[in-house]
Design a binder for these strands. Structure first.
Length: 261
DNA sequence: CCAGACGTTGTT
DNA sequence: GTCTGG
DNA sequence: CCAGACGTTGTT
DNA sequence: GTCTGG
């Protein structure tokens, strides 16, 4: 299910990602305003790095607008356009994932899957193993260390007070594969690597959802690897929240550490 | 027709 | 247990 | 996703 | 908005 992920996108990574597209410079200024620039450079070229992206955080997504692809900062937790956009009214439930089998049958996702598909760039994501009361996080990433493209849906809503457009998104999930089965029965819909054509196909509203899904749903992931990481990533909130490269470093299980405790 | 709900994961 | 916040 | 809070009255 | 239930 993908409820926490990592994106290490340096300047070259963005350049590689957007290639022929124009990036709004608004994008970079907004990053700064939100205080979400975790890695700043002296140049004006934007970058984005977070080792701990959680629901409600802002993260970059790629969308189709006015016939071109754009990189947008969006809030992770989809809010449909038909819900109140009064900031004082909170959504009734959180929607950071969307089941692939519900996209067409539920009115909640219907409009988005037809008109508002997005690509969520990720370097890797976390998955927790339940061990009694403990939640042991694992990091799943491509063996080559490159970014991957997750299937997502987004919505645009105008904030009536500020007039600003609020972009929100969700990550599509699908039944697990053999690689992930030991950890979870649902996994994110990975459209492939960042150079893969498939995510462009996904963004094209003329593409039928079933067409893309047939290629990627529950396929095996020979390109992926995983290892356990420190529970440092678990914490949210202000006091204990961590966001540092060490979060994705491998740690051994206690029983493998030679009883040092 | 109108009114009301619209999600996920994981657990049992 | 369930809901909220990050 | 996980962690943390979850209530009231009455006071400043 | 769109789907379901009555």
């Amino acid at each position: 299910m993908c409820g926490r992920y990592v994106l290490v996108m340096d300047e070259d990574g963005i350049a590689k990602l957007i290639q022929e597209q124009d990036i709004d410079h608004e994008w970079f200024s907004r990053l700064e305003q939100e205080g979400r620039v975790l890695e700043t450079s002296s140049t004006e070229r934007p970058s984005f790095t977070s080792y701990n992206i959680a629901p409600t955080h802002l993260a970059p997504i790629v969308i189709n607008r006015s016939g071109s692809r754009q990189l947008e900062l969006a809030r992770w937790s989809f809010v449909p356009s038909f819900w109140s956009n009064d900031p004082s009214e909170n959504p009734k439930f959180s929607t950071f994932n969307a089941r692939d089998d519900k996209l067409k049958s539920s009115g909640f996702w219907r409009g988005a899957v037809e008109q508002y598909r997005c690509m969520v760039p990720a370097t890797g994501f976390y998955e927790w193993e339940k061990a009694g009361k403990e939640r042991l996080p694992h990091y799943i990433h491509r063996k080559d260390g490159e970014m991957m493209a997750l299937a997502g849906l987004y919505s645009l809503r105008a904030n009536p007070e500020t007039g600003e457009t609020l972009t929100t998104f969700t990550v599509v999930t699908t039944p697990t594969n053999r690689f992930m089965e030991p950890l979870h029965d649902r996994i994110p819909l990975v459209l492939g690597g960042i150079e893969d054509e498939l995510w462009s196909v996904w963004l094209d509203p003329r593409t039928r959802f079933e067409q893309v899904e047939r290629h990627v749903a529950s396929r095996e992931w020979p390109e992926m690897a995983m290892h356990r990481v420190s529970t440092d990533v678990n914490a949210t909130g202000k006091a204990k929240y961590k966001n540092e490269p060490g979060l994705i470093e491998p740690v051994k299980r206690v029983e493998e550490q030679g009883g040092l405790l």
